[in-house]
Write a protein that binds this DNA or RNA. Structure first.
Lengths: 195, 195
DNA sequence: ACCTGAACACCGTTCAAGT
DNA sequence: ACCTGAACACCGTTCAAGT
């Protein structure tokens, strides 16, 4: 039954979700094509019917990660539109949590062994959706009307750079322990997102 | 003669510098223990006399990269102390150039396949030297006297996060092409480091 | 059209053996 | 003390062969 359904096109999806599973359990170093195939219950050559090589599978897994990130951030943004909390901080916090709760997924998404993600149309689609969301959030936070396009782009780059850099450095344990002992993570993030 | 000198302790250093070479040529994916040993002209088991495993060699290579980054930034800082240009921008630019001119080295240093760098005393030493340099730079840029320790730490985290995030995202090609076409890289970086 | 199994070239790591 | 060569378990990729 199971091996039968794979003949109807589910294998591709199964490889992606199982890849995310292993990524979450064993990290980026522990993710191999053969291991994914083994766990799915298929021969190690089977994935090549759906992905041209390992890079292509990794790109698909990364794309799925970006979709999850979009869902997460969109939900936060949507639920806070009417509760006037500090939206920027909540979004940044969600970004950080997304990274911390599954470092392997985040590292695959951004610390790119993937050179040719830009060739996969599905990836560029979700990437631009994420950019659009980021811009919408910034636009919303400037309550005094819309920003000019130029300022919007600059603001997006500044915000994303800060939050992404802080998240990466926290994930890689690059800040000295004194820094982290003296302050709470959320407090530091607040300082990072505040202008 | 050459194989003789390896009996006198140069092999360890040779493995590190050859590792950096291969990293620069083939990227992080193309760096294997056996390839390093082969290029140095030694058997694939020889490195185990100097490093407990591949991780340990990678940690040593990463440490060497951090030393190079320190040298680069220190030189800039030292040479600009008396020419009152925009030091923060020049430092940030040097950081970005350091990453762009050798992405493999930068990725190894920060996109950590290295979990146990903190166990290597040489690494924690250079890491804290880099932190101290960062603090000195910030201190210098606040011409009105010294900052309190708390504000200094916060300022260091904010600056490093911004510059590191921007650098990583540029390196991984995460910004949409429209952003990059509409602005020059240095102009964007200037916006990122300006408060 | 999709999957399997054998084959190949590579990898990290260990260990007896050499000097 | 340091290096070698064989050995082992793993990997990505290809390809004939099966259904």
């Amino acid at each position: 039954m199971e091996s039968d359904t794979y003949h109807h096109g589910n294998l591709k999806k199964a490889l992606i979700t199982t890849g995310l599973e292993i990524l979450s359990e064993k990290g980026i170093e522990g993710l191999s094509l053969r291991k994914v195939a083994r766990r799915v219950g298929v021969s190690h050559a089977a994935p090549y019917n759906h992905f041209s090589d390992k890079q292509a599978l990794l790109a698909a897994i990364s794309t799925e990660g970006h979709k999850q990130l979009y869902e997460t951030l969109f939900r936060i943004f949507d639920s806070m539109k009417h509760a006037s909390e500090d939206i920027l901080l909540e979004i940044a916090w969600a970004y950080l949590q997304f990274a911390v709760e599954d470092p392997g997924r985040f590292k695959l998404m951004f610390s790119g062994a993937l050179d040719e993600e830009s060739k996969h149309p599905e990836f560029v689609e979700i990437a631009s959706k994420n950019i659009a969301l980021l811009e919408a959030i910034i636009q919303f936070c400037k309550e005094d009307g819309r920003l000019p396009a130029e300022a919007l782009e600059i603001a997006a780059i500044k915000l994303w750079s800060s939050v992404h850099g802080f998240t990466s450095l926290v994930l890689e344990d690059q800040f000295p322990p004194e820094y982290m002992q003296a302050h709470q993570l959320r407090e530091l993030l607040k300082a990072v997102v505040s202008p």
